[in-house]
Design a protein around this nucleic acid. Sequence first.
RNA 1: GCGCCCGUAGCUCAGCAGGAUAGAGCACCGGUUUCCUAAACCGGGGGUCGGAGGUUCGAGUCCUCCCGGGCGCGCCA
Length: 596
Amino acid sequence: MTRGDITTAADPTRLLEEAFREAIVAVLGDDYRHVDPIIRCSQNPAFGDYQANSAMSLAKHAGLKPRALAQQIAEAVAKNLRGVAETPEVAGPGFINIRLKAEALGKMLEALDTPQLGVHRDPNPHTIAIDLCGVNIAKQMHVGHLRSTIIGDCLARTFERIGRTVHRENHLGDWGLTIAMVLWSLTRSGDDLDTLGLEDLDKAYRHAQAECRQDEAAAAEAKATLIKLQQGDTETRRTWHKIIDVTMRAVYESFDLLNVKLGPNDNRPESFYRDRLKDVVEAFRVSGIAQEDQGALIVRFPDRDRPLILQKSDGGYLYATTDLAAVRRRVQELKASRVIYIVDARQRDHFRDVFDAARRIGWDRLDDGSRAELVHVPFGSVLGTDRKPLKTRSGENLPLRLLLTEAIQRATAEVRRRAENPSAPTHGLDDEALDAIGKAVGIGAVKYADLSSDLVRDYLFDLDRMVSFDGNTGPYLQYAHARVCSIFARAGVTPTDPAIKSAKLVITEPAERSLGLLLLRYPSVVAEVAATLEPHRLCTYLYDLANAYNTFYESCPVLKADRQQLRLSRLRLCNLLSRVLADGLDLLGIQTPGRM
RNA sequence: GCGCCCGUAGCUCAGCAGGAUAGAGCACCGGUUUCCUAAACCGGGGGUCGGAGGUUCGAGUCCUCCCGGGCGCGCCA
């Protein structure tokens, strides 16, 4: 490995790709310089650590026999990989299997053992905007906001981890007729606004909505209130600010409880765009992209019946109008090359229309002429164990607080139960400490359950399963991490001890090897999540990693290793593992208590 | 009616821009260990990957049709 390999030194896949590309060129000629060598991790250890799968398709293209070509590539690549891998072997229809030398594996792991943990920096200088959370003023947060917030925060952390600047855009619903209905309802009732809580606002919201639906006079009053709000009437504005304060105070508490990196600076409410809506509509009108139809202004698309409505026949604007204003700002002012919407899958059609309209008018174009990627990350509903969307008995959305409180209670109960074991490191901790751990575990459980399967699928909110310390759960991962911490406590050394930090990593046992190979995949997994916007890939990886660690720990003595060199090597490996685990969990927004 | 999404073990889910005999967890059955270790680890049974065609050297993965479930569809957000 040369000096120039500093970034790839810890990433065998990249190293192998290079080596194979050269080998392919050596065998087939320069025309093949840009083919993908198709390097994959082997599923089965019997086939080595990695495999190159390109020979089969290349053979067809070049008119050669697959196995014969594979043999030639294998021979050519052997030279490039001297010192790194054993002699590559051809198997099956033309797979080339590669097994890393233990020595090289140790070196790569040492190269991974940096503060960056080998994660590559994304050189793209543009920012990324993530539309997430989207709470409504005067409404409690419910399960629908949960997913958007958790997923958005996770993706934001991932992008920040690879060096991108992220704008978290909390597109608050603080404007429009629904808000006006609440304001009207509150002024009429004459309640003391200073004593109002979010539950009261929530109630007013529902009552006002029901009343306006049935009673035309009420609807007219609400509309009048909207006009007062729009015209800046002092009293109305005062009430408006008040309900925003009350709502957001509770929302910030939820953010804090959830351990998401969101705050007042991330608020970009609908009202922020209110002065821009006229321009949006005008731009579409003068460009001819939008047309009048039955008194409304709409955009038609050649490939679908459904039009996008920009302006109602009464002159009012719609949420599509605001969304277009937001796209424009995010690309042109925030300079985002990716604008990502974390919104319920049911709004797929809406975003398709909005994005297509934005592209047609060119609002996805950046200064340098490139086009920003507008992408909707759709997620499924949260279902109860009865397979129906989570609702309260009265059929309303389940408040987030209720749901989180129960998760925390369950987790805390389990933490306490385990603390009764005299050999548990948590034994004898006071209530406050145990509660703090229970909170981290409960929230971690909810988040992991949310992030660990394909986002578009509906997921079952099953507390029994998600709070369990066994299986593919948040607590299992946190537990694996805590166990590593406890080794160091027992060893009486800190992970930063120079003897550990500088120890040579020696890979001997199979379990050690599997763990090492898995650790080396971390940088590419992070990159993969950033590319695909699929956090569950990271979850699966971390779960495999925790499993590999538990197996290693079972079969490889650490503190009682028979040689001092091996002991230090394994301690260093443990430390590396714990940091990768903690780093990965942090990307998921999950905390890692030292004991649990 | 039009459109979108989903269908993998009893249950909950993976399956990495098609690659070797389809993998986990839970549950079930059996074993090891009480250990440097916080009860963890190892093994087993269980699948015509919704169905039928097609493309390919190779399909759970791509294409077409069908079945089943969910969701959306002009002035709410």
